[in-house]
Computed example of a mutant assay.
Amino acid sequence: MTKFGYFLGCEEHDPKELVRQAVLAERAGFESLWISDHYHPWLDEQGQSAFVWSVIGAISQAVSLPITTAVTCPLVRIHPAVVAQAAATSAVLTGGRFQLGVGTGEALNEHIIDSRWPPAAERLEMLEEAVELMRELWSGKLVTHRGTHYQLDTARLYTLPDSPPPVYVSGFGEKAVTLAGRIGDGYISAGPTAELVDLFRKSGGAGKPAQGGLKVCHAADEASARRTVHRLWPTQGIKGEASQLLPLPRHFEELAGMVSEEEATASTPCGPDPEAHLKSIREYVDAGFDEIYINQIGPQQDAFFEFYARDVLPRLR
């Protein structure tokens, strides 16, 4: 049976508000949580970007829902040995309800440590080595690692959960999805593409969970919802590799200035009609995703949770 979760957006909301939303999500009937992991927001207009590991710690004590990072990049900004420690601690705090979602990241967040942004093929190599290193550390053994991309000297994790946290790998292209199937305990995607889910399963992911996420905007009327999406997430209308390559929010703002409201909202259900929301979510169900995470754009969080508890989640089930 498909599970439905809420996607906490660290780019839009401060840490206390994210914890509050997690509580509201559980009360509304959502079954799990995604949480984004950024150093910068995509746009200054979004306005926030808290340290995700502190937020996860707080959420773990406020709700009983499983939590997945969507997604953490363990390549440049934070060494995989440190991510391994953070993930292990999160798994302990949640009683084993934590999944580490990983991906190859964006220059937007990673360039703060190193201005050289590796090409996609190299980042996939780095991701595979990083996952291997983290799993070795979760064994509790003393680890020394001399790899192609990472070095580690006599490191051991002492605070460990009963079982290592599952690693879910994000992928949007053929090579990344194939890697997800080969090394991941699950798959993460942000589009309802059945072909990618099929590729994941054929590449070693058969029987493993596939998680998908989408953004929506509930509001009193469709027009105001569309304006909110265009103001806060015009980046949805930016095509190609720009989201991986641009280093600063102002660069995204420059491109976003060329994105129309229609382009920004093309994949986002807007307004108070439950049928529009149900239609978009069912596209993910039909694509074969086992878990679907929904993010409400904008400040109308309380109204969103009431709307979904009353008009959307019961009909999905």
Rank of each mutant, 00 (worst) to 15 (best):
I294S: 03
Q46M: 14
V76Q: 07
F305M: 05
V82L: 11
T228E: 15
Y293H: 11
G173N: 03
L199N: 01
A194K: 08
D286C: 13
E31K: 09
Q48W: 06
H13T: 13
P192A: 08
L278I: 15
E26T: 04
R97W: 12
H40R: 12
G95F: 11
G271W: 05
F30T: 06
P166A: 02
I113M: 11
T69Q: 01
N109E: 08
A81E: 06
I56N: 07
P247G: 05
A303D: 14
A194H: 07
S267F: 09
V312R: 04
K3I: 07
D311T: 10
T72D: 08
V102P: 05
R310A: 15
W53L: 10
G184Q: 00
H251Y: 05
A70G: 11
D37K: 01
V285D: 02
A121T: 08
T228F: 13
T235N: 12
I35S: 09
G5F: 03
P66A: 13
L214H: 02
I112G: 08
A220D: 15
D14I: 13
F304S: 13
P119V: 02
C73K: 03
H230C: 15
F98W: 07
A87T: 03
T148V: 10
L246Y: 04
V55F: 05
V216C: 12
R282W: 13
P247D: 01
L133A: 11
V76P: 08
R226M: 14
P166D: 00
L160H: 03
E263I: 09
V83G: 02
S280Q: 14
F305C: 04
E291L: 07
L75R: 02
V102S: 11
T68E: 06
P272T: 06
R310W: 07
W53V: 05
V23E: 14
P234T: 12
R97G: 12
S139A: 09
R182M: 09
L246E: 04
G271V: 04
I281P: 01
H230S: 15
T159M: 12
K239T: 14
E125L: 08
K239C: 13
A70L: 09
P165S: 01
E132M: 11
L316T: 10
L24F: 10
P272N: 12
L214C: 07
S267V: 10
Q61F: 14
A180T: 01
R123V: 00
P192M: 05
E306M: 07
A176H: 00
E283W: 06
P166W: 02
A242P: 06
D286A: 15
A70H: 06
R201L: 01
S49P: 12
Q61L: 15
A50T: 13
A242M: 06
T89A: 12
G207S: 03
Q211R: 08
I112E: 12
H145P: 10
H13K: 10
D302Q: 09
Y187Q: 00
A190H: 06
H277Y: 08
K175R: 09
A210P: 05
D221Y: 01
M126V: 02
P247C: 02
D44G: 11
Q99P: 05
P161Y: 04
A28T: 07
A121E: 14
S90H: 07
K239G: 14
R20E: 14
A180F: 00
F4I: 09
E136G: 10
V143W: 04
H251Q: 15
T268M: 05
R27C: 12
C270Y: 02
P41I: 02
S32D: 14
G181A: 05
T104I: 12
R317K: 15
